[in-house]
């Protein structure tokens, strides 16, 4: 465990110094929130103030982009000799990857707080109880963790940081066919089935309900199950891929 913390400290230092990526990771959420609220929001009718509707979607969209940086960090590690150095210090794959995942979570939470601060400034008024806030943040962390582990596994699968960048694009795209920005019943019928049931929609609906203080039924548990499932599969895959890669 403490090895994971040392590795997290390393990943955080590396993140802090990767200024370009850090600025992108922090500026992107802010820009996206402004774009959706002021460019598109006027034309979209969701039954509530659009900023209130769209904040969870922006959070997840950015969590997707932010987590995907994990793939690049892992590929960079494998490109040089540092993984071998860690292994020759008898440090296994888990602490190395966990360090990247925890650092990714920290980066994303920083971006999240920026989004919340800006959203409040432009009229976001949630009605969540303290427990609701806690649950919403918990779910967000679970989602970030799931995507970061998935991203770590992708980083072990692909050969180059450029290929890892392709994963960013795919994950970044997932929130669009969901209830992140528009209601799914406004989409064509053939898309509704996917859009209404895919994991991103579940997580967004749960977080939105929690923040607005509305009953969310079983959505919260379904969302959590998705995150736990993705994490479990990604951790297992990462373990296998790590052993295969370092042969």
């Amino acid at each position: 465990m403490s090895e994971s913390l040392i590795m997290t400290g390393r990943s955080l230092r590396l993140s802090r110094r990767n200024v370009d990526a850090l600025i992108t990771a922090l500026a992107l959420p802010v820009l996206l929130l402004l774009i959706f609220v002021y460019f598109f929001g006027g034309a979209i009718n969701t039954g509530t103030r659009y900023v209130t509707y769209v904040v969870p979607g922006v959070l997840l969209l950015c969590a997707g982009f932010g987590s995907a940086n994990t793939a690049q960090a892992v590929t960079e590690d494998l490109k040089g000799g540092i993984v071998d150095r860690f292994r020759s210090l008898d440090i296994g794959g888990t602490p190395i990857l966990a360090g990247h995942v925890l650092a990714s979570t920290a980066r994303n939470l920083l971006a999240t707080s920026l989004v919340f601060a800006l959203a409040f400034a432009i009229g976001f008024r949630p009605a969540a109880s303290p427990a609701g806030w806690l649950a919403a943040l918990g779910l967000l962390v679970a989602y970030i963790t799931a995507l970061s582990w998935l991203s770590a596994a992708v980083g072990l699968l692909v050969k180059s940081p450029e290929a890892a960048g392709g994963f960013t694009f795919f994950i970044g795209f997932l929130p669009y066919p969901s209830s992140a920005f528009v209601r799914t019943d406004s989409m064509p019928t053939w898309l509704q089935g996917f859009a209404a049931n895919q994991p991103v929609t579940q997580v967004i609906e749960a977080i939105r309900g929690l923040l607005l203080g509305k009953p969310i039924g079983s959505t919260g548990w379904v969302a959590l199950a998705w995150c736990a499932g993705i994490t479990a599969v990604a951790v297992a895959a990462a373990g296998l891929l790590f052993r295969r890669r370092v042969r």
Partner: peptide, 16 residues
């Protein structure tokens, strides 16, 4: 692993 060290052809240190 505890008894050895390895220095490979690629520098195993963080540039940043």
């Amino acid at each position: 692993r505890r008894a050895i060290s390895l220095t490979g052809q690629f520098a195993a240190v963080d540039e940043m």
